[in-house]
Amino acid sequence: MSEGAMEQALGSEALGVLVDILEKPLRLIRDSSSGGFSAQRHVDLILESDQHLFLVECKSSASVRSIEAGIEQLKRERSYVSYKPALPVIAVPFMGEVGKQLCRSASVSWIDLAGNAHLRGPQLHIRIEGRPNRHRKPGRPSNVFAPKSARVTRRLLLEPTRAFRQRELAQETGLGEGFVSRIVRQLETEGLLSREQGAIRVKNPGLLLDAWREAYSFSHHHIVRGHIPARSPQILLSSLADSLRERSILYAATGPASAWLHAKFAGFRVVTIFLKDIALLSASSLLNFRPEERGSNVWMIVPDDLGVFDGAVDLEGIRCASAVQTYLDLLAMPERAQEAADELRQKRLSWSLHG
């Protein structure tokens, strides 16, 4: 099915979703798409209530490029002559965090076919979130943020203002030039990178980080939870780091413990730590580590790709994953992890808050 045909089919379904959302609070909804407005319209749907006019642009995906194109189209329609406030709306199969951020920055409302929505205008504020994606495609999608592929994004975000040559990316990530070329090309297609005189730059570091966050799966790592007797989490972290260093085992703290060192945010209860290979450990001799799920105060994590160690830094004598990696891992963890992630982004990833 062509993209145009997909968007036409999406429009039909989006009409039903929008009517369902708006019919009760606004009481009266009319489809004006084929009425007197049609000669001038350049959007996919036009709906009216007693108080509002909704200009709806349908997109077959929520990629950066697709959402940006929809926003540009809606901007051209804002001069639409009407005696009612005209609300621009993007409709997609499922809206992710990146799309939400783009719409929020452009003051554009959105809906998706799962029934999630953020519609805001004069005397109107409707927010529906948490409904699952009903349009997930079967099979394993091509993913530029798969564990090995994500080395490219990680390297770009470790130096978000730098212009890279593809050969440099290949050398610094340990990946083949052909593999890197495919990843870069796909990131360009998705509107996340730009190319200037042969050099690659991140267009909007915050969007790239959020796109990666959406695709990142902490559970794909091999995680062994357990307990080590200690007087405090800080002493445990220091002792564990010393023991691993003495054994010449590659490690990096992540999660709340790493955020505590990076951004001095609150404390932490669980020490989460990447290890190159758990087989290198003698669990019985490593500070009396005892595997157990309940009451665990240590998570030993064998990563799904060694790229997690890229950008690791020494903080107060403890090797920590980069702020970028720590941020991603925090979002899948308990305690006050979300607050720690927000603080880390403010203090150490402030470049991701602009653009």
Rank of each mutant, 00 (worst) to 15 (best):
L175E: 09
R155M: 08
W299Q: 14
V81G: 04
L236S: 09
R131H: 10
G176M: 11
T153W: 07
E23I: 15
S32A: 14
I301H: 06
D210C: 04
K59Q: 02
K100A: 08
P303I: 02
E159V: 06
S243H: 05
T254G: 04
F289S: 03
D277Y: 10
W260C: 07
W260Y: 12
V270P: 03
E177L: 10
Y251T: 03
A230F: 10
N116Q: 08
I228G: 10
L18P: 03
L157Q: 00
A199C: 07
R151W: 00
L280T: 05
I46Y: 00
Q234V: 11
D342E: 07
V64I: 05
Q101W: 08
G11Y: 00
K137W: 05
S2T: 11
R30Q: 11
S239C: 11
R294S: 08
S109D: 00
Q40C: 05
S34L: 14
E72K: 06
Q234T: 15
D20C: 04
S238K: 14
G115T: 09
I249G: 00
V180L: 04
E129N: 11
S258M: 02
H118R: 08
G139T: 08
I200W: 00
R154P: 04
S352E: 06
P138V: 04
F37D: 08
L287G: 05
G355F: 08
I128F: 02
I111F: 08
E293N: 10
R195C: 09
I200P: 00
I273F: 01
V89N: 03
S33C: 03
L344M: 15
L330K: 09
K264C: 05
A146P: 05
S105W: 03
L250C: 15
K347I: 13
S285T: 15
T153H: 07
V271T: 06
F54G: 01
D31S: 02
R245F: 15
L169I: 08
L113R: 06
I273K: 00
R27Y: 12
A283S: 06
G70Y: 01
S107D: 06
E23Q: 15
T153S: 15
R290V: 15
H135F: 15
E48Y: 14
A62P: 12
H262Y: 09
L156N: 04
L28A: 09
G226F: 03
H222V: 11
M6V: 05
L156R: 09
